[in-house]
């Protein structure tokens, strides 16, 4: 991942919404970074060549079925102390 060209970065979201419930069921974030001398770009858009790509894909389900988790006392204490 060396040689990152931080002046050439792209990101986009892909979001799937269930038309029946109007709830998001999939969220995908793609983040791209060019590499100096090897990335192909059209303007500021990365279209090929060597580049770094990161994909974060969330799948959501069980809406309204998850109950409040029980946080152990010690965990809550540590969490409260953190800034």
């Amino acid at each position: 991942m060396s040689g990152a060209d931080k002046t050439l970065t792209n990101a986009f979201y892909e979001i799937e919404i269930d038309p029946d419930t109007n709830l998001p069921v999939r969220i995908k974030v793609t983040a791209l970074t060019g590499r100096r001398g090897t990335t192909e770009a059209k303007g500021k858009k990365i279209v090929g060549g060597e580049h770094a790509a990161f994909h974060f894909e969330y799948r959501l389900s069980d809406f309204g079925k998850v109950e409040k988790p029980e946080v152990p006392h010690e965990a809550a204490k540590v969490l409260a102390k953190l800034r």
Binding site: G48, R59, L60, D62, F63, G64
Partner: peptide, 26 residues
């Protein structure tokens, strides 16, 4: 609607690295 749902389950897949193609496959 998601804010109203309160609780839900979420699975996250993270994949990152080097791509050489226009579809950004790794």
């Amino acid at each position: 609607n998601l804010a109203k749902a309160g609780g839900y389950r979420t699975q996250l897949e993270v994949q990152g690295g080097l791509s050489k193609t226009p579809d950004h496959a790794l």
